[in-house]
Amino acid sequence: MTGRIDVHQHMIPEIYARWLHAQGVKDPGGRQLPEWSSDAALDLMDRQGIETAILSVSTPGVFLGDGTDAARMARQVNEYAAELVTAHPERFGFFATLPLPDVPAAVAEATHALDVLSADGVVLLANNAGVYLGDPAFDPLLAELNERAAVVFVHPNELPGAAADGIPPFAADFLLDTTRAAYNLVKLDVPRRFPSIRFILAHGGGFVPYAAHRLAVTIFGETGRDLNQILDDLRGFYFDTALTSSPAALPSLLAFAKPGHVLYGSDWPFAPELAVGYFNTWADDAHIDHRSARALFSRLKETTPDV
């Protein structure tokens, strides 16, 4: 079986969409909330050669305002996703949504989603109410994820500051947000303190592959750690190709990432099918398309034998 495994495809369950609209969220990241259904996802997947999609909720996640409904909504979204995977086990998986920055609630939901709902991993926003991944406040959650050797999909959020007029956050700010999270994770030694966690950075890692040496030199100046070790930690992330597999970006990503650490991503439905097809033009590689993902996700390895 050679169909693509899409590690960056979003779901927008009706209950979640209604909740977002009730909270006044209509254009997260600067894009209008698109229509979504599991049937539409399957149709898109068939047209674009996607065998399996690991679904996740995009920005803004479930923590809005004071976070009153965050834990409840995370549980509802995750239970919906688990039911969808039960109905289509070879077509869908999911990254569980967690109610960060409420760390105790996030730990409780992570353990439930991974241990009871059999989630394929968790999705964490790069910053949560302005606090970036890597912050010591999140260490109790990372300890639980490390114990389970979890896959963590890092998705950008809107920057903790005003957006620039005329530049929608998804166009440029998202790339910076992911880069900030990767920088903070490496600076605070998270990949070595929690070595069993496998982090996937969305959108080719933002600016990480292209600015890695600049980032590494800065971290070296702040920490005094070995420069080659810092670069190795930056290279040790996984990277998805969502909106990134262009003839300009993909060669740089492949030159930087460790072998087997580049995974296919579509970003549908926030990326319309026209954009998905456009970037698929340059993402025709068996390791990117499916083999590296099968090596990362044990469930897919078992159900999708290598060819």
Rank of each mutant, 00 (worst) to 15 (best):
Y132T: 09
V57L: 07
P101T: 00
D240R: 01
N184G: 14
A70P: 03
A40S: 07
V122P: 01
F94W: 05
A126P: 12
A150R: 06
V107A: 14
G67T: 05
E109M: 06
Y80A: 07
A74Q: 05
M45S: 02
D66P: 04
A211S: 14
P169K: 13
L117I: 09
I197V: 15
L176A: 13
A171K: 08
A126N: 10
F220D: 05
F297D: 09
D39W: 00
E302C: 10
H21Y: 07
H213G: 04
L296I: 06
I167W: 01
D120T: 00
A22C: 03
E144L: 10
N146H: 06
D102N: 08
A181S: 12
S266Y: 13
D46L: 00
T59S: 08
D284N: 15
L55C: 00
A164T: 03
W36L: 07
T59D: 07
I5D: 11
D69V: 01
Q48E: 08
V131L: 12
L250M: 11
Q9H: 06
P272G: 09
P104R: 01
F297T: 10
T2F: 05
D177V: 14
H213Q: 02
R91Y: 05
K26C: 01
F279T: 07
R180A: 15
T111G: 02
I288V: 13
P305M: 15
I15Q: 03
V103I: 12
H155G: 10
G24P: 06
A106P: 04
T179P: 10
L176S: 13
E79Y: 01
R299T: 12
H88I: 13
W282R: 10
D46N: 00
G65E: 02
D285T: 04
T223E: 07
G93H: 01
F174W: 08
A248I: 13
A143H: 04
V262I: 01
H8W: 10
W268S: 15
V122F: 00
A163D: 10
V103A: 10
L231T: 00
E302G: 14
A105V: 04
G224T: 02
W36Y: 11
S245W: 08
R193N: 03
F153I: 05
H203N: 15
H203T: 13
H203F: 15
E147S: 14
D306W: 05
V208K: 11
N280S: 12
T111L: 10
H203E: 15
A41W: 00
T303E: 15
P269I: 02
L117T: 09
K301S: 15
P101N: 02
P191K: 12
T59E: 03
V107D: 12
F63K: 03
L234Q: 07
R31S: 03
V77H: 10
L253E: 11
G277H: 10
L188D: 12
G121C: 08
A119P: 15
K26Y: 03
S266T: 15
A211E: 09
P13V: 01
Q229I: 06
P140E: 02
H287P: 05
G49W: 03
F239T: 13
S246D: 07
Y278I: 04
V190R: 06
G49D: 12
A40R: 07
D102E: 04
N128E: 10
R299I: 10
A164E: 05
T244D: 05
A216L: 11
L64K: 02
G121N: 09
D69E: 06
A271V: 13
I5T: 11
G260F: 02
M73E: 04
A249F: 12
